[in-house]
Design a protein around this nucleic acid. Structure first.
Length: 155
DNA sequence: GCCAACGTTGGC
DNA sequence: GCCAACGTTGGC
């Protein structure tokens, strides 16, 4: 099993929306490196839902990967914001995965907590200027973030 | 709103 | 293939 962090602006789609929907198709990733990471995902992998561009930004909860990467249909739709003429049904460029809601943290693990944790010092999303919306993390990092969430929830 | 960092585009 | 210009991301 692998572990991931997936970012989304909560004003667009939040952990609350995912909790309501149960599962959703994670679409609109238009970065090759992030796409390649999505291709590496396997059913059953665990992912954190990270609220980016939020006040405060941080990890809002967990989800599981419910389906492997499949072509992102929005890329084929000229009227859609995520349309990309480079991607066709015959030769799809972009992919989406289905994610299932697992847990919403009682308290968001904000970015300051992440930065203040030694075990998380090499997190890609903490690097200055980082813009990758899908990044892998290792098991120790997963557990470190879960520990932050659990200690906050017990407050 | 600011701005640093980064990816993409397009002229050459 | 290089690289400047530009647009976007995302923390602050």
């Amino acid at each position: 099993m692998r572990y991931w962090i997936m970012k989304c602006e909560p004003s667009v789609y939040s952990i609350t929306d995912l909790e309501r929907d149960g599962e959703t198709s994670w679409e609109g990733v238009r970065n090759y490196q992030a796409r390649n990471f999505m291709r590496d995902m396997r059913v059953g992998d665990q992912a954190f839902f990270y609220h980016s561009n939020a006040t405060p930004p941080g990890v809002a909860g967990t989800m599981t990967i419910q389906s492997p990467a499949t072509p992102d249909p929005f890329a084929f739709d000229p009227s859609h914001r995520y349309y990309d003429p480079k991607s066709t049904p015959e030769r799809p460029v972009w992919v989406s995965v289905t994610v299932r809601h697992q847990r919403t943290f009682a308290h968001l693990v904000h970015i300051g907590q992440l930065r203040g944790t030694d075990a998380l010092s090499s997190l890609i999303i903490l690097r200055p200027g980082n813009r990758l919306s899908v990044t892998p993390i290792n098991e120790a990092e997963w557990q470190a973030i879960m520990a932050l969430a659990d200690s906050s929830d017990r407050r």
